[in-house]
């Protein structure tokens, strides 16, 4: 066993990149679920964001345009889900699954011409003297803006949900849509907005995979990250702070186990490979002992007549 070959600074740097797509998608889904909607289409929206972001970046040469339009693409796709579930009152679980299948197929079609192309690289954010700090400069302050955007969004979403009137309204819609409706809030409209936000965040997360984490376009490249984001929201008890913890833990243990394998640590690989799932679940289950439950109206259809 030779642990000296693992560089903790690079480990932390990789961890932040690995966790970011998961964090973005999970934060988006968190807002959707707090509004009382269960959208299982995260994987489909992510992969659509991944392919759209990639195509736009290759065509325009600008990763920022790519990220922007990936978010737009994710939001547009999510509107399909919103229309089905909020207007036509279709089953949310079935519609979400359909959205994932649709997204996977659509992205494969759109991306046909873009296999094997190298995208322009996403520039690192220039943090000036911070990036020059020994050790922590490389580990924490040498990333692109999306990494910090995801962290900033965590705080922003927490603030929005807990400290603003609009956030309170959104939560009210998620807890009891009939009461919220009786108070005069536009339940369907608020849910449309939440779903669009979730779609945009998932699209952004997908684009982060195809533009930074891998960076290339391959069919089906999200390979289940959307589903992990969905599970993460539940295990994090619908709280933004726990989502960020879970995402970093999952990303961190994932990167760590690969590094431990490469360093030849004598722990059976099966345990290492399953560690990200096990550690994240255990940590979040222990934290959720305070019994904060799911939004009461989660997944239930709403119609003003009922």
């Amino acid at each position: 066993m030779d642990l000296s070959s693992i560089n903790p600074v690079l480990l932390v740097a990789s961890l932040m990149i690995t966790a970011t797509p998961l964090l973005l998608a999970a934060l988006g889904e968190l807002v959707v679920e707090r509004a009382g909607v269960l959208n299982l289409g995260v994987e489909g929206m992510m992969i659509t964001g991944a392919v759209c972001g990639f195509i736009i970046t290759v065509e325009t040469g600008s990763p920022w345009m790519g990220f922007l339009l990936a978010a737009v693409a994710g939001a547009v796709l999510s509107m399909l889900f919103a229309l089905l579930t909020q207007v036509f009152l279709a089953n949310q679980v079935a519609s979400g699954l359909a959205l994932t299948l649709f997204g996977l197929g659509l992205s494969a079609l759109l991306g046909r011409e873009y296999v094997g192309i190298k995208p322009p690289s996403t520039p690192k954010l220039d943090l000036g003297p911070l990036a020059d700090l020994p050790i922590i400069g490389r580990a924490f302050f040498s990333h692109d803006i999306i990494v910090y955007f995801a962290l900033a969004m965590t705080v922003a979403i927490w603030f929005f949900l807990q400290r603003t009137r609009a956030g309170l309204t959104l939560r009210a819609v998620g807890e009891n849509h009939d009461a919220a409706h009786a108070l005069g809030y536009k339940v369907v409209l608020i849910r449309f907005a939440a779903i669009a936000f979730g779609g945009a965040m998932a699209g952004l997360g997908g684009a982060y995979i195809s533009l930074v984490r891998v960076p290339q376009w391959t069919e089906g490249m999200t390979a289940g990250i959307g589903w992990i984001a969905l599970a993460l929201v539940v295990f994090a008890s619908w709280k933004p702070g726990r989502v960020v913890l879970g995402a970093y833990l999952f990303g961190g243990v994932g990167v760590l186990q690969l590094n431990l394998q490469a360093a030849g640590v004598s722990i059976p690989v099966e345990y290492l490979a399953s560690a990200p799932y096990v550690v994240t679940i255990i940590a979040l289950v222990i934290m959720s002992k305070d019994r904060s439950g799911a939004p009461a109206s989660l997944g239930r259809p709403f119609h003003a007549s009922s």
Binding site: I6, P21, I209, V214, T218, A223, G254, V255, A262
Partner: peptide, 13 residues
């Protein structure tokens, strides 16, 4: 792909 890329990066690092 994401995991394969992570594995490659870990080895390169």
């Amino acid at each position: 792909p994401a995991k394969e890329a992570d594995a490659a990066k870990a080895l390169i690092e």
